[in-house]
Design a protein around this nucleic acid. Structure first.
Lengths: 185, 185
DNA sequence: CGGTAAAGTGGACACGTGTCCGCTTATCTC
DNA sequence: GAGATAAGCGGACACGTGTCCACTTTACCG
């Protein structure tokens, strides 16, 4: 649906790639993710970094593009194998997995969905989630007055969860949310 | 339960009071809440401000002490008049009201609850919420595997809601959460 | 090719947060 | 009241974020 790339100049493209690679390294090294440090390691100025990625989340979204892609791809696959509600539950489980291991993924997802919806075009994640919800609505097991953004908002607690309480709360609250999303009999 | 004050020195007490007052003014003026600006307006150094209130939320919690007090006080009152689930719903409504008008209140509440629970002592808000939940559990209308922190985490979406979508989402998602919290028949 | 206009660059800069530590001042004791 | 001492002060400083704009480079065109 998108016209290739908006014609990126050669040097710009290489800089962009180097920034992403540098970011990947920094993140892999596990420490804090300092933007200007990434710029320095990539051998570019801060201005360059910020032009390519206006916000931290934009950069993260790019770094985690593959992971997000997996999430998106998983939705139809799950729908094919399970009932809508089960598929939704499994998919959310998967999101939670990412959120635990790579906190950045979810932060990026959250922002991406907000931006996409604000631009009146649910992006890939929004579409995946919408597909899951729609299937449930069609079947009558998911309340009809819920959309992708709603769910993203609700599971946002995953970001604020502390490592120590993850085991006791993450899955559990996912269950509570699912109960709320389920259509009352 | 707390031993008066930990014996605050006279000048310290006056500084603390001036900081709070300055913060109130800045917040009332509606602009951004810049910590060092508050310090300057209060006529103290930044160090002083940060010693009295280590984090932004600590300061906000103090500024909004009265509002939080109202929330806490409302819980028993609501319980006396309504069934537990209704009381809980009303109380959450009230929290949402605060969250919309004074975003700072909720941020402060959220942090306070986290800290209190981490210190193994649900603070005032935790106690209020727990009372509401316990009443529902006793009556069998609230699922028993939910605690105050769970609910605070869930309604945390209120902070991330944009003004424009408040009307369409805030109350609505509160309803979804309540449905999840309700005990399955 | 050589010129040129637009795309891109990168580092200086402004700002807010939070820490640190040498100096000041309140309070207690004799 | 004078001296001691611990509590408190406050501004300088270090750091990360994000912006801005004078300069450089690329890609196109005659």
């Amino acid at each position: 649906m998108r016209m290739d790339q908006p014609e990126l100049r050669a040097d710009a493209a290489s800089n962009r790639a180097r920034i992403i690679q540098a970011a990947r390294h920094v993140i892999a090294d596990g420490g804090e993710v300092k933007l200007n440090a990434i710029a320095k390691q990539a051998g570019v100025g801060q201005g360059t970094l910020y032009r390519h990625f206006p916000t931290r989340e934009n950069l993260l979204a790019e770094v985690y593009r593959e992971d997000v892609g997996e999430l998106v791809a998983a939705a139809p696959a799950l729908l094919a194998e399970h009932e809508p509600l089960t598929a939704l539950a499994r998919w959310l489980d998967r999101v939670a997995d990412y959120a635990q291991v790579k906190r950045g993924v979810f932060a990026a997802v959250e922002v991406a969905v907000s931006q996409d919806l604000a631009a009146h075009s649910l992006g890939p994640i929004g579409e995946a989630l919408t597909a899951l919800l729609d299937a449930g609505k069609a079947e009558g097991t998911v309340r009809p007055d819920i959309d992708a953004r709603d769910l993203i908002l609700l599971i946002g607690y995953l970001t604020r969860l502390q490592e120590a309480e993850w085991d006791s709360r993450a899955r559990h609250l996912l269950q509570v949310i699912l109960d709320g999303v389920r259509r009352r009999p």
